[in-house]
Simulated scan of single mutants.
Amino acid sequence: VTKSPTMMKHLGQVINDESKRLRFLVEKVLQMSMFDRKKAVFKKKRLDLNEMVENIANSFTLRVEHTGGKIYTEIEAIDSTIYVDEMHFQNVINNLLDNAVKYRKPDQPVDIYLRTWNDDEHLYLSVRDTGLGLKKDNLKKVFDKFYRVHTGNRHDVKGFGLGLAYVKKIVMLHHGDISIESELGKGTKFTIKLPVIKD
């Protein structure tokens, strides 16, 4: 690693981004209970979704490549300004990527595709993976708090089952919507729809 300045720079940036994110992970459970009591306070600012997606994809590259797969970005949104709480919205995207890596097919590479695009009124972000996929019965429940899809004897999948409940809550509180499409054995796709921010 030390012989390659490019790799050193990349790893340094990943460590920086991930350490920033780790500070907030423990707070997630506390945030969830706060939302129940309507006490959530956002620090919203104008950000560029395209830029955020590129940065997060860059940070996640090593984790995805570790499985033998790749992460792809398709940046097609023209009006990509979002008005969001940066920490929470980054957590939303990171949670979806975390799930894609967690619920991959055992001992197989996982590819992840991040795409942004627009129509007249909305800005979209989709996160698609080539992982395990879900049964139709599970699709209705994935956003429920504490619900976790049964993955058999998989000791590497840990968590409280708060990830997607948190994701949905944050998206809804930003006046957006999130949907899921999935096919068992083929993979899963999440699509986030946000209002376009116009000057």
Rank of each mutant, 00 (worst) to 15 (best):
H10S: 12
V41T: 14
D48R: 03
R21F: 14
R37G: 02
D17L: 04
F24K: 00
D17T: 03
V26C: 06
F24D: 13
V41Q: 14
L49S: 00
A40S: 12
E51P: 00
E51I: 06
I15R: 01
K44R: 15
N50T: 07
K45I: 01
L25W: 00
M8H: 14
S19Y: 08
F24E: 13
R46G: 00
N16F: 11
K43S: 13
H10L: 12
D17S: 08
M32H: 04
L25S: 04
M8G: 13
G12Q: 10
L22Y: 13
R46L: 06
R23L: 12
M34S: 10
V29G: 02
R37I: 07
V29N: 01
M34Q: 05
I15Y: 11
E18P: 02
F42M: 04
R21Q: 13
K38T: 05
N50P: 01
R46N: 07
L47R: 05
Q13F: 08
R21K: 10
V14E: 02
K45Y: 01
E51K: 15
K38C: 08
K39C: 05
N16R: 10
M34H: 09
L22S: 08
K9S: 13
M34G: 05
K43F: 14
N50W: 10
V29C: 00
N50Q: 04
K38Q: 11
K9A: 15
E51Q: 12
L49P: 00
V41S: 14
K44N: 08
S33G: 08
M32C: 02
L30M: 04
R23K: 02
V29E: 03
K9D: 11
V29Y: 01
K9C: 03
R23S: 07
R37T: 10
L22Q: 11
F35W: 10
F42S: 03
M32S: 08
E51Y: 09
M32E: 01
S33A: 11
Q13S: 13
N16I: 04
K20V: 12
G12K: 11
N16M: 09
S33L: 08
G12A: 12
I15M: 12
N16E: 14
S19E: 07
L30W: 07
K9W: 05
V14W: 04
K39N: 06
V41W: 07
R21E: 15
R37Q: 04
D48K: 04
G12H: 06
L47E: 05
K20Y: 15
I15Q: 07
M34D: 11
R21L: 13
M32Q: 03
R46D: 02
D48F: 05
F35L: 07
K45G: 11
F24M: 03
E27H: 13
S33Y: 08
D17Q: 05
D36C: 02
K45C: 03
K39V: 06
L47Q: 00
N50G: 02
V29S: 05
K20P: 02
K39W: 10
V26F: 11
Q13C: 04
R46C: 01
A40I: 08
R23G: 09
K39R: 13
K45E: 10
K44C: 06
D48A: 08
K39L: 10
D17C: 00
L22E: 09
L30R: 10
F24C: 03
E18D: 06
K28F: 05
D36P: 00
V14H: 01
M8D: 13
K38L: 09
L25T: 03
M8E: 14
F35C: 03
L11T: 15
H10I: 15
